[in-house]
Computed example of a mutant assay.
Amino acid sequence: MATLTERLADCYSGVIYDVMRDMGLAAAVLPSDIRPLDPEVKIAGPVFTMRGRPDKTVDAHASLLAWTGFLSKAPSGHVVVCQPQDSVRALMGELSAETLKHRGVLGYLVDGGTRDVSFIKAIGFPVFCRYTTPIDIVASWIPEAFDEPVTIGNVVINPGDYILGDQDGTVVIPKDRAEEIISRAEAAISTENLVRAAILRGEDPQQAYLQYGKF
């Protein structure tokens, strides 16, 4: 039987948004300028959060010790979501992406920057970010909290919430409603397939909508 993460990965962000809207839930969509490095790659799974901050007093050794400590903490089968409170540095790079992928982490989303883009794309590790830059975190940034709620845009992301990101954008699913939302999304996709088949048979689009209640 497919896991909830595998089922979510077979969905797309638009149908999750539609389902949550129809359920009367808040539209938990992250800012549109957070984009995948590779548009063909998705992120999907439960969230492990990290929050950090710039720190001009930290030395190179302390900053790298704290960063590698984060890499050790990130749990397999999860997507890391980082709120760096920073708009200057890259909060992901080649060696870190290799490490997380090897440890079974499913992807990384940061409300900030990334570097080593070609290397990360080559290994197929899903990274979503706002911008790219060669500037790193050495002697300038430090993590301060793990597995606590973080806010990106106007969305509060709790540890254990589910996230789905694709080239359309990224949606956050509350952990206590994840099974229901994903099940409804799967049903909606099945109905969309019926509508598509009807259109391709030559049926009128309005009649197809009226028959299936979906478009």
Rank of each mutant, 00 (worst) to 15 (best):
K214P: 08
V19R: 02
F48M: 03
D166L: 04
A9W: 02
L164Y: 02
T49W: 11
L91K: 10
A90R: 04
G213K: 07
K73N: 09
A28F: 08
L95W: 12
I157T: 06
F128S: 05
V195K: 03
L200S: 10
T57L: 12
V172D: 01
P174T: 07
A185C: 08
F215T: 13
A178Y: 03
V19H: 06
H78L: 06
M92Y: 04
A185I: 07
I182V: 14
M92R: 09
S13M: 09
V110K: 03
P54C: 11
H61L: 14
D86M: 07
D204H: 10
Y162A: 03
T68V: 12
A28M: 15
A28D: 13
A208C: 03
E40S: 05
D10G: 12
I16Y: 04
A2C: 08
E6F: 08
F125I: 01
V117K: 08
S183I: 07
A122M: 08
I43F: 00
V47C: 08
T133C: 11
Y17P: 04
A122L: 12
Q211P: 06
K214S: 13
D55Y: 06
F128W: 10
G77Q: 05
A185T: 03
L4H: 01
S72H: 14
T99K: 10
L8I: 04
P75H: 04
K73V: 09
K121L: 00
R130Y: 07
P174E: 01
F70S: 06
K42D: 00
V41N: 00
Q85W: 13
I182S: 02
T191I: 10
I163D: 00
T191F: 03
G213A: 05
F70T: 14
Q83D: 11
V155R: 01
R103A: 11
A27Y: 02
E192Q: 11
I152D: 00
D176E: 14
R7S: 11
P36K: 02
R177C: 14
F128K: 04
L91T: 10
R177M: 14
A145W: 08
G169L: 00
Q206W: 14
L37T: 02
R103P: 07
H102M: 14
A28L: 15
G77E: 01
D204Y: 03
D147M: 07
V81L: 05
C11E: 08
G202H: 05
P54T: 10
G24H: 08
S72M: 10
E203M: 11
S13T: 13
G24M: 05
I142Y: 01
G77C: 06
I123C: 02
S72P: 02
N158S: 12
D147F: 07
A97D: 01
S118K: 12
Y108N: 05
I16Q: 00
V15N: 06
A185W: 00
L109G: 01
T99M: 07
N158I: 09
L37V: 05
F70H: 12
E180L: 12
I199K: 05
S63R: 07
Y209G: 10
L210F: 13
S183G: 08
N154W: 11
D86R: 09
G52M: 09
Y12Q: 03
Q211K: 15
Y131C: 01
V172I: 15
Y209M: 12
G45K: 03
A145N: 15
D10F: 07
D147V: 10
K73R: 15
D166G: 04
D147E: 15
G77P: 11
G113R: 04
G107L: 04
I135V: 15
P39V: 01
